[in-house]
Design a protein around this nucleic acid. Structure first.
Lengths: 109, 109
DNA sequence: ACTATGCGTTAGTGATGACTAACGTATCCC
DNA sequence: GGGATACGTTAGTCATCACTAACGCATAGT
């Protein structure tokens, strides 16, 4: 899996990261938010830990998972490296087009 | 594949989008930048077109591919929806820790 | 010590993805 | 028309992934 962006892009893991963003949670608490089994969540968490996006602290018989800020920073760096200035300009372009209603036909510079 | 973020996260497609960000290109021109076959690139392009991130214009016997700004905007929206305020705070936290050799004096509680 | 709980681990399955090779098709040039 | 070019398309392979079910292991509570 190697890179953080690929790991974080997966829908389930995306939601997991969002949950952990606001507060640290145990595996069970996270799994309660999903329809899949706790085992599946556990494996997603291990993968996220592998790429350094989360860390686990063993407390009693539970594992408290939390986001690892340094890993998150690497993720942001990957996103930033992808989202170049040119892409930003194109998005601004789309915004301009959108503001002039729906059709985008015959609106070329 | 359904969502743009999952599609754009794949390393090869990421590079393709970056190439197309600065200029429109034909399939052959794109494929020349990779070690994989032109067929593989073509399929990646079709997938990117499916999720609305690129469009193709047939010109003679070539196909000019370019980034679709509206699709790119949807991608940015997905990223923004993922990158919540909480995650931003955590990243700021990581930055504070990393730059402890430059500015270190009492950062947070 | 016994049992229940909270997790990780393993094995196995089905689906999907990335890729190559070969083929089909439209277009350009002579 | 004939051959080369620029693609998409298809079929098939191999690896990876998301998932479930069953098990194993440590800890907490009694």
């Amino acid at each position: 899996m190697i890179d953080a962006l690929s790991a974080a892009a997966e829908p389930t893991r995306r939601r997991i990261l969002q949950l952990l963003a606001s507060q640290e949670l145990t595996v069970g608490e996270i799994a309660a938010e999903f329809t899949v089994t706790r085992s599946a969540i556990s494996q997603h968490l291990l993968l996220l830990a592998e790429v350094g996006l989360v860390t686990a602290e063993k407390v009693g018989r539970q594992r408290i998972y939390r986001v690892e800020p340094s890993g998150l920073r690497r993720l942001q760096a990957e996103i930033d490296r992808f989202w170049t200035h040119e892409l930003d300009l194109l998005v601004a372009d789309a915004r301009a087009h959108k503001s002039q209603h729906t059709t985008e036909s015959e609106t070329h510079p």
